[in-house]
Amino acid sequence: MTAEQPAPRRRRFDLFGFEVFRGLLAPCADDAFADVDAALAAGRNVRGSRDRRAVPDFLGRSAALSRGCSAARLEALAADLLGGPCVYLYGDASEIRGDTYWHSDTEDAASKDPRPADGSQARLVKFVLYDTPLDGSSGALRLLPGSHRAPAAYPTALFDPEDVPAHVLTVDPGDVIAFDPRSRHAALGGTVRRQIAIAYARRSQNAAAQDQLMSLVMADKTVL
């Protein structure tokens, strides 16, 4: 990448639906994932199945992660990517085993017309980081650039998961992927990995946008 300016970064996020921040949470990653291990081991308020055990509201349970997000000005980054003031939605941790099939987090809502009558659009961003290096063969997030604008135009279910021509986001611990949860995404060949996910939405400008945001959040399968 060449010179980094806020305007190109927002344009990239608008255009492709993702952005990678190398090393953004590296200062707190080890301590935050130690807290994930402790929370999973304790088993208190852990939900999900063997393939995906999740700790809801993890951000509120990890001082290390909370301090790290403040130091990295994560909410300001969300506002920069979404083009306006944001509200915090959730901050969860998960242990994931194996593959994640192709999907949009907001599958049902995204298949409907995403724009309220006034033309405004609810906007979301999900930040994720992992405890281990990941590439295309070990469970790295892969997505279809631009699919957040029209997820229904990308019928991934017609293909074997590995045949979908995806963009693989290789990461190291501390790297943070920001993506629009409406994007078509998956993870294949996955080893056991821990993930922290923190989501924000642009503050709604009117009742229609608020309704649309609520429907997107309620459709998000990762919201526990």
Partner: peptide, 21 residues
């Protein structure tokens, strides 16, 4: 219906300036 025409194409053609890539 993918929404690539118009401004997205312009930004791609001016990728250095518009996208920093």
């Amino acid at each position: 219906e993918g929404g690539w025409q118009g401004e997205p194409v312009r930004q791609l053609m001016e990728h250095d300036r518009a996208l920093g890539l």
